[in-house]
Simulated scan of single mutants.
Amino acid sequence: MRSRPVPSPCVCVCALDENDICIGCQRSSAEITRWSDMTDDERLEVMKLVAKREEKIAL
Rank of each mutant, 00 (worst) to 15 (best):
V13M: 15
A30G: 12
T33M: 14
I57H: 13
E31N: 03
C12F: 14
S3R: 08
V13R: 15
K56P: 05
L59F: 12
K52S: 11
E18T: 13
V50N: 01
A51I: 07
V46L: 02
M1H: 15
D20L: 00
I23R: 03
P7H: 06
N19Q: 12
D17S: 05
L44Q: 07
E31D: 04
R34S: 08
E45M: 12
P9C: 08
M38P: 01
E18R: 09
K56G: 05
E54I: 13
D37S: 13
E54N: 13
S8R: 01
S8W: 02
V50I: 07
A58T: 05
P9E: 09
P5Y: 09
D20T: 00
V11Q: 03
S8D: 06
A30F: 14
G24A: 03
V6K: 02
L49V: 09
T39P: 00
S28I: 01
A30K: 14
W35H: 08
M47Q: 08
Q26P: 06
L59V: 15
W35N: 06
P7A: 07
T39R: 00
D40C: 04
M47D: 05
L59S: 15
E55F: 12
W35S: 04
C12V: 11
A58W: 06
V13C: 15
N19Y: 10
S29D: 15
E45C: 08
L49K: 12
R2Q: 09
E45S: 13
L44F: 10
R53F: 00
A58R: 07
P7Y: 06
